[in-house]
Simulated scan of single mutants.
Amino acid sequence: MTSHPHVLSLASGRRTPSPGGGRATAIDKQPVDSFEVREPGPKHGGLGSGVVGDEIGNPRHHGGSLQAVYAYPREDQQFWSERIGRPIRPGGFGENMTTVGVEMTRALVGELWRIGDVVLRVEGPRIPCQTFAAHMGEQRWVKRFTEEGRTGAYLSVVTPGVVHTGAEVVVERPDHDIDVLLVFRAFTGDLAAARRVVAAEAVHPETREELAESLQRRGA
Protein backbone atom coordinates (compact mmCIF):
# COMPACT_ATOMS: atom_id res chain seq x y z
CA MET A 1 0.00 0.00 0.00
CA THR A 2 1.45 3.39 -1.05
CA SER A 3 1.54 5.64 2.02
CA HIS A 4 3.65 8.61 0.91
CA PRO A 5 2.08 11.58 -0.93
CA HIS A 6 1.50 10.36 -4.45
CA VAL A 7 -0.41 10.60 -7.72
CA LEU A 8 -3.48 8.39 -7.42
CA SER A 9 -4.67 8.86 -10.99
CA LEU A 10 -4.23 10.95 -14.13
CA ALA A 11 -6.83 12.07 -16.65
CA SER A 12 -7.09 13.86 -19.97
CA GLY A 13 -10.08 15.09 -21.96
CA ARG A 14 -11.37 15.91 -25.42
CA ARG A 15 -13.94 18.58 -26.23
CA THR A 16 -17.50 17.27 -26.35
CA PRO A 17 -20.88 19.05 -26.66
CA SER A 18 -22.04 20.73 -23.45
CA PRO A 19 -24.96 19.00 -21.64
CA GLY A 20 -26.92 22.25 -21.99
CA GLY A 21 -26.20 22.63 -25.69
CA GLY A 22 -23.74 25.50 -25.20
CA ARG A 23 -20.00 25.75 -25.74
CA ALA A 24 -18.13 22.46 -26.08
CA THR A 25 -16.32 21.36 -22.92
CA ALA A 26 -13.44 19.02 -22.10
CA ILE A 27 -14.30 18.71 -18.40
CA ASP A 28 -15.20 15.02 -18.74
CA LYS A 29 -11.66 13.72 -18.27
CA GLN A 30 -10.84 10.05 -18.88
CA PRO A 31 -8.16 8.07 -17.01
CA VAL A 32 -4.71 7.53 -18.47
CA ASP A 33 -1.68 5.71 -17.02
CA SER A 34 0.70 8.58 -17.77
CA PHE A 35 0.89 11.86 -19.62
CA GLU A 36 3.46 14.38 -20.77
CA VAL A 37 3.39 17.90 -19.32
CA ARG A 38 4.75 20.95 -21.09
CA GLU A 39 4.82 24.74 -20.76
CA PRO A 40 1.71 25.72 -22.76
CA GLY A 41 2.50 29.41 -23.13
CA PRO A 42 -0.03 32.23 -22.75
CA LYS A 43 -3.73 31.62 -22.20
CA HIS A 44 -4.54 33.49 -25.41
CA GLY A 45 -2.67 32.14 -28.41
CA GLY A 46 -0.77 29.39 -26.56
CA LEU A 47 -1.11 25.61 -26.60
CA GLY A 48 -3.98 25.48 -24.09
CA SER A 49 -3.48 22.72 -21.56
CA GLY A 50 -0.10 21.87 -20.10
CA VAL A 51 -1.00 18.21 -20.56
CA VAL A 52 -0.19 16.93 -24.04
CA GLY A 53 -3.39 15.56 -25.62
CA ASP A 54 -5.69 17.33 -23.16
CA GLU A 55 -8.09 19.86 -24.66
CA ILE A 56 -9.56 23.11 -23.35
CA GLY A 57 -13.24 23.85 -23.90
CA ASN A 58 -13.10 27.58 -23.18
CA PRO A 59 -9.61 29.01 -23.78
CA ARG A 60 -10.82 32.46 -22.69
CA HIS A 61 -10.99 31.30 -19.08
CA HIS A 62 -8.93 28.10 -18.93
CA GLY A 63 -5.47 26.89 -19.85
CA GLY A 64 -2.22 28.74 -20.31
CA SER A 65 0.91 28.79 -18.17
CA LEU A 66 -0.79 29.54 -14.85
CA GLN A 67 -3.45 26.85 -15.37
CA ALA A 68 -1.31 24.25 -17.12
CA VAL A 69 -2.33 21.32 -14.89
CA TYR A 70 -5.29 21.05 -12.52
CA ALA A 71 -4.85 18.87 -9.42
CA TYR A 72 -7.43 17.81 -6.85
CA PRO A 73 -6.98 15.76 -3.66
CA ARG A 74 -8.84 12.48 -3.39
CA GLU A 75 -9.56 13.24 0.26
CA ASP A 76 -11.63 16.30 -0.72
CA GLN A 77 -13.48 14.34 -3.39
CA GLN A 78 -14.45 11.85 -0.72
CA PHE A 79 -15.66 14.76 1.45
CA TRP A 80 -17.88 15.92 -1.40
CA SER A 81 -19.04 12.39 -2.14
CA GLU A 82 -20.37 12.15 1.40
CA ARG A 83 -22.08 15.54 1.06
CA ILE A 84 -23.88 14.80 -2.20
CA GLY A 85 -24.57 11.14 -1.46
CA ARG A 86 -22.97 9.54 -4.49
CA PRO A 87 -19.48 8.43 -5.51
CA ILE A 88 -17.13 10.73 -7.39
CA ARG A 89 -14.54 8.95 -9.47
CA PRO A 90 -10.95 10.20 -9.67
CA GLY A 91 -10.96 12.75 -12.48
CA GLY A 92 -14.61 13.46 -11.76
CA PHE A 93 -13.99 17.14 -11.06
CA GLY A 94 -12.28 17.58 -14.41
CA GLU A 95 -8.87 17.41 -12.80
CA ASN A 96 -5.80 16.15 -14.64
CA MET A 97 -4.20 14.80 -11.50
CA THR A 98 -5.83 13.25 -8.44
CA THR A 99 -3.54 13.04 -5.42
CA VAL A 100 -3.44 11.28 -2.07
CA GLY A 101 -1.62 12.76 0.93
CA VAL A 102 -0.91 16.13 -0.70
CA GLU A 103 -2.21 19.19 1.19
CA MET A 104 -3.86 21.44 -1.36
CA THR A 105 -6.23 23.93 0.25
CA ARG A 106 -3.38 25.18 2.40
CA ALA A 107 -0.72 24.65 -0.27
CA LEU A 108 1.44 27.75 -0.59
CA VAL A 109 1.59 29.73 -3.82
CA GLY A 110 5.01 29.03 -5.32
CA GLU A 111 5.23 25.61 -3.70
CA LEU A 112 7.10 23.12 -5.90
CA TRP A 113 5.94 19.56 -6.48
CA ARG A 114 8.65 17.20 -7.67
CA ILE A 115 7.15 14.16 -9.39
CA GLY A 116 9.97 12.07 -10.77
CA ASP A 117 11.84 14.36 -13.17
CA VAL A 118 8.87 16.71 -13.50
CA VAL A 119 8.56 19.89 -11.41
CA LEU A 120 5.20 21.66 -11.06
CA ARG A 121 4.53 24.95 -9.25
CA VAL A 122 1.37 25.82 -7.31
CA GLU A 123 -0.15 28.98 -8.82
CA GLY A 124 -3.63 29.32 -7.35
CA PRO A 125 -7.17 27.99 -6.93
CA ARG A 126 -9.87 26.88 -9.29
CA ILE A 127 -12.75 29.35 -9.51
CA PRO A 128 -15.95 27.30 -10.01
CA CYS A 129 -17.98 28.05 -13.13
CA GLN A 130 -21.31 27.05 -14.66
CA THR A 131 -19.63 24.39 -16.82
CA PHE A 132 -18.44 22.72 -13.61
CA ALA A 133 -21.94 23.06 -12.12
CA ALA A 134 -23.55 21.50 -15.21
CA HIS A 135 -21.02 18.66 -15.11
CA MET A 136 -21.83 17.93 -11.47
CA GLY A 137 -25.60 18.32 -11.83
CA GLU A 138 -25.96 19.51 -8.23
CA GLN A 139 -28.17 22.36 -7.04
CA ARG A 140 -26.32 25.54 -5.99
CA TRP A 141 -23.02 23.83 -6.80
CA VAL A 142 -20.98 26.98 -7.44
CA LYS A 143 -22.16 28.53 -4.16
CA ARG A 144 -21.53 25.35 -2.16
CA PHE A 145 -18.10 24.80 -3.67
CA THR A 146 -17.18 28.44 -3.01
CA GLU A 147 -18.36 28.37 0.59
CA GLU A 148 -16.35 25.23 1.34
CA GLY A 149 -13.14 26.47 -0.30
CA ARG A 150 -11.79 23.02 -1.24
CA THR A 151 -10.73 24.23 -4.67
CA GLY A 152 -7.83 22.05 -5.69
CA ALA A 153 -4.85 23.80 -7.26
CA TYR A 154 -3.74 25.00 -10.66
CA LEU A 155 -0.10 24.28 -11.42
CA SER A 156 2.43 25.68 -13.85
CA VAL A 157 5.13 23.54 -15.44
CA VAL A 158 8.66 24.35 -14.27
CA THR A 159 10.35 21.22 -15.62
CA PRO A 160 8.48 19.30 -18.34
CA GLY A 161 8.41 15.54 -18.68
CA VAL A 162 6.22 12.51 -18.16
CA VAL A 163 4.09 11.96 -15.04
CA HIS A 164 3.09 8.41 -14.10
CA THR A 165 0.24 7.13 -11.96
CA GLY A 166 1.52 6.14 -8.53
CA ALA A 167 4.51 8.49 -8.61
CA GLU A 168 5.57 10.10 -5.34
CA VAL A 169 4.97 13.84 -4.88
CA VAL A 170 7.80 15.61 -3.03
CA VAL A 171 6.77 19.08 -1.84
CA GLU A 172 9.10 22.07 -1.35
CA ARG A 173 7.41 25.00 0.38
CA PRO A 174 8.46 28.67 0.08
CA ASP A 175 8.98 30.97 3.04
CA HIS A 176 5.67 32.89 3.16
CA ASP A 177 2.07 32.23 4.22
CA ILE A 178 0.04 33.01 1.10
CA ASP A 179 -1.91 29.82 0.46
CA VAL A 180 -4.41 28.65 -2.17
CA LEU A 181 -7.43 29.25 0.07
CA LEU A 182 -6.41 32.87 0.76
CA VAL A 183 -6.05 33.55 -2.96
CA PHE A 184 -9.44 31.94 -3.57
CA ARG A 185 -11.07 34.16 -0.94
CA ALA A 186 -9.33 37.15 -2.52
CA PHE A 187 -10.93 36.34 -5.88
CA THR A 188 -14.38 35.67 -4.41
CA GLY A 189 -15.03 38.95 -2.65
CA ASP A 190 -12.90 39.04 0.50
CA LEU A 191 -11.28 42.48 0.30
CA ALA A 192 -8.98 41.91 3.27
CA ALA A 193 -7.69 38.73 1.64
CA ALA A 194 -7.18 40.55 -1.65
CA ARG A 195 -5.21 43.35 0.02
CA ARG A 196 -3.05 40.80 1.81
CA VAL A 197 -2.30 38.85 -1.37
CA VAL A 198 -1.45 42.00 -3.32
CA ALA A 199 0.82 43.32 -0.56
CA ALA A 200 2.69 40.01 -0.18
CA GLU A 201 3.74 39.85 -3.87
CA ALA A 202 3.91 36.06 -3.62
CA VAL A 203 1.57 35.35 -6.55
CA HIS A 204 2.42 35.67 -10.23
CA PRO A 205 2.48 39.34 -11.40
CA GLU A 206 -0.48 38.65 -13.71
CA THR A 207 -2.56 37.38 -10.77
CA ARG A 208 -1.46 40.24 -8.53
CA GLU A 209 -2.35 42.80 -11.19
CA GLU A 210 -5.82 41.31 -11.63
CA LEU A 211 -6.47 41.53 -7.89
CA ALA A 212 -5.01 45.04 -7.64
CA GLU A 213 -7.27 46.24 -10.45
CA SER A 214 -10.28 44.66 -8.72
CA LEU A 215 -9.42 46.47 -5.49
CA GLN A 216 -9.04 49.76 -7.37
CA ARG A 217 -12.44 49.34 -9.05
CA ARG A 218 -14.04 48.74 -5.68
CA GLY A 219 -12.29 51.67 -4.08
CA ALA A 220 -10.52 49.38 -1.64
Rank of each mutant, 00 (worst) to 15 (best):
G219C: 09
G149D: 00
R195M: 05
Y72C: 10
G45C: 05
T98C: 05
L120Q: 03
R74C: 04
S12K: 11
V51D: 01
S156Q: 02
H164E: 14
K43R: 15
R86V: 06
F35D: 00
S214L: 08
E55P: 09
V162D: 00
V180F: 02
P59F: 06
T99Q: 07
S3H: 12
L211D: 01
V170F: 06
R86C: 12
E138R: 01
R15G: 07
M1F: 06
G53M: 06
A68L: 10
D76S: 12
N96G: 11
D28W: 14
L8E: 14
A11C: 04
T188R: 02
G63D: 03
Y72M: 08
G219Q: 12
N58V: 01
T207M: 08
G116I: 11
V37L: 12
V142R: 15
V158Q: 12
R217S: 07
V69T: 01
V163W: 05
V197A: 10
E55A: 12
C129R: 06
E147T: 15
R89A: 15
D33F: 06
F35N: 06
V109W: 05
E36H: 14
V198T: 08
V118N: 07
R121G: 09
A133M: 07
G92P: 00
R140S: 14
R126P: 00
I27Q: 01
V170T: 15
F145Y: 11
G57W: 06
V51R: 02
P90L: 08
I88T: 03
V122C: 13
Y70Q: 06
P205D: 03
V100L: 13
G94H: 09
G63W: 07
H176Y: 12
R14V: 15
G124H: 05
A200E: 12
A153M: 09
H204E: 05
V118Q: 03
V169S: 04
V69D: 10
W113T: 14
E36Q: 13
G110V: 06
R144K: 14
K29C: 12
Q216M: 10
A133D: 02
G48I: 02
F93Q: 02
V170K: 14
T146V: 13
G22V: 06
L182D: 03
C129H: 10
A153Y: 02
N96H: 14
G166Q: 09
T105H: 02
I27M: 04
D28V: 14
I115C: 09
G64T: 00
T165Y: 00
I178Q: 09
E55M: 08
S12R: 13
V118E: 01
L215N: 09
T25N: 10
E39W: 07
V118C: 01
P160Q: 01
V52T: 04
T16V: 11
V183S: 02
E172S: 15
A200T: 14
G92L: 11
F35H: 05
G91P: 08
A24L: 05
L211T: 01
T16G: 04
P128S: 07
